[in-house]
Write a protein that binds this DNA or RNA. Structure first.
Length: 462
RNA sequence: UCCCUUGUAGCUCAGUCGGUAGAGCAAAUGGCUGUUAACCAUUGGGUCGGCGGUUCAAGUCCGUCCGGGGGAGCCA
């Protein structure tokens, strides 16, 4: 059975084909009916033409071909007399594989994304969500292609972790203890985790970075690409409790090399999608965000702007009056600051490096100035931070000293510190939120609409 | 977690100064000689998010809870 994509790519010469799909719309005339059929293999529908004067398809069958029904159609593929499509199928037989009903919630009209979120199990049957799904798949393939072509090994870091030290956010606890029983007891001494499945407190991972570092310090170039979980109570269009993160980690690599790889990576994915998902991208360009294709093309062409945090603050200081939060050295960049830099000053992606150590994680390499670390964030218009990365502190003494300043216990990180005890090397890496990259590429507005079943605060439906 | 906003037909919304509900689309039915979210006509469709209060009278005013959306913080 050929997909509609395969059928529509054929030259229509009257050959007999069999097509399967779901009815999008049906338009009835006295002697003729048109059915728009879609199987999700591509954005385009196949127009099915039913000649009512010819008895091949009964009126009873035709009546069952309402929006949402699934059909198998056999007929001749011919050039279309109408203007909306090149080819169409003149049906000889139609088999209704599955009936629909008047309660089918998807109508042949526009629906809001908010409404479609409530029927997430059916929304993939709309143009927008099917296009997002196809692009997401193509991007996943491109992620692996980029790294595999550049000598990276794909490492599967654990989903469940008993490290209490990943430090990137609030964690979801994993337990087999009976919480109902625990909740009823007065627990003066706390919970006895030695009785739990893993014998200690365990959680879902918030980052594969620390594990990836251990493999980078063995295989040199590795990456992870998997689900990540954050139990933050954040309610925005850019956050999910369950999201997919891409985290490369590279040995013998300083921050400069890290930035080069990050920039090349983003450009590779954009270029791949522009070349391989043309029909879907044109849909996003006309229906979702006007001009998104041209924006992406320019991002691929131009080198990313690179500035230090200190330079960023200087830029922001010139427009200090326009901000709610005054830009002061030492403070983290606010959303309004990121927007100003990417949208007003540079009009494109900006890599900001060398942040104050106080606002960055303990494992980042300390600069000689004693104030900043070798961190880099890539900021993009509309979304803000899309990548966060750094060169890692490779010096055992400096790393331990920084941990002490922050009150972190050495024994909790002994395996991580072993990387610095035994054959330490300069190494770097970054994390990229996959869904944010999808938002950037498609122009979609809400991160909940670029993952099939979004998990957010108070929402784990489907 | 904080701020703003919103909840009325299957969907998108209107509903004025408090007086018991309206449109478009969708659906169903009929019509129509090739349509492109087809078109034309007819019909059906409502616990106005829940609970409580004020009032002769509440979709409308007040309180509270729940849901949706946007922004901020946190971050990817």
């Amino acid at each position: 059975m050929d997909s509609l994509k395969a059928i529509l790519s054929q030259s229509p010469e009257g050959q007999t084909v069999t097509a399967c799909g779901w009815v999008r719309t049906k338009r009835d005339g006295k002697n003729i009916s048109f059915i728009a059929l879609n199987d999700g293999s591509c954005l385009s529908n196949l127009q099915v033409v039913v000649d009512k004067e010819n008895d091949s398809v009964s009126n009873e069958t035709l009546a069952r071909c309402g929006t949402g029904a699934s059909l198998q159609v056999t007929g001749k593929l011919v050039a279309s007399e109408g203007g909306g499509q090149n080819a169409e199928i003149h049906a000889d037989t139609i088999t209704v594989l599955g009936d629909t009903s008047e309660t089918f919630p998807l109508q042949k009209k526009h629906h809001s994304v908010e409404f479609l979120r409530e029927i997430a199990h059916l929304r993939a049957r709309t143009n927008t969500f099917a296009a997002v799904a196809r692009i997401r798949s193509a991007m996943s393939y491109a992620v692996h292609t980029f790294f595999q072509q550049n000598g990276f090994f794909y490492v599967h870091t654990p989903i469940i972790t008993a490290n209490d030290c990943e430090g990137a956010g609030q964690m979801f606890q994993v337990t087999t203890l009976d919480l109902d029983t625990i909740a009823r007891k007065e627990l003066k001494d706390g919970i006895d985790y030695t009785q739990d499945f893993f014998g200690k407190k365990a959680s879902l991972t918030v980052s594969g970075q620390l594990s990836a570092e251990t493999y980078a310090c063995a295989l040199s170039r590795v990456y992870t690409f998997g689900p990540t979980f954050r139990a933050e109570n954040s309610n925005t269009t850019r956050h999910l409790a369950e999201f997919w993160m891409i985290e490369p980690e590279i040995a013998f690599c300083t921050l400069e090399g890290n930035m080069e790889i990050a920039e090349a990576f983003i450009k590779f994915i954009l270029k791949y999608v522009l070349e391989n998902c043309k029909e879907d991208m044109e849909f996003f360009d006309t229906r979702i965000q006007k001009g998104v294709i041209e924006t992406l093309r320019q991002v691929v062409e131009k080198p990313f702007v690179r500035i230090t945090y200190t330079e960023a603050i200087e830029h922001l200081a010139k427009a200090a009056d326009s901000f709610e939060f005054k830009p002061v050295w030492g403070c983290d960049l606010q959303t309004e600051h990121e927007k100003y830099l990417t949208e007003t000053v540079f009009n494109g992606p900006v890599i900001v490096t060398d942040y104050p150590k106080e606002i960055k994680a303990f494992y980042m390499k300390q600069n000689d100035d004693g104030k900043t670390v070798r961190a880099m964030d890539i900021l993009v218009p509309r979304l803000g931070e899309i990548i966060g990365g750094s060169e890692r502190e490779a010096d055992y003494g400096k790393l331990v000293a920084r941990m002490k300043e922050l009150g972190l216990k050495e024994e909790d990180y002994s395996w991580y510190l072993d990387l610095r005890r035994f054959g330490t090397v300069p190494h770097s890496g970054f994390g990229l939120g996959f869904e944010r990259l999808i938002l950037y590429i498609t122009g979609m507005a809400n991160i909940r609409d670029v993952i099939p079943y979004p998990r957010t605060v108070k929402n784990a439906e489907f």
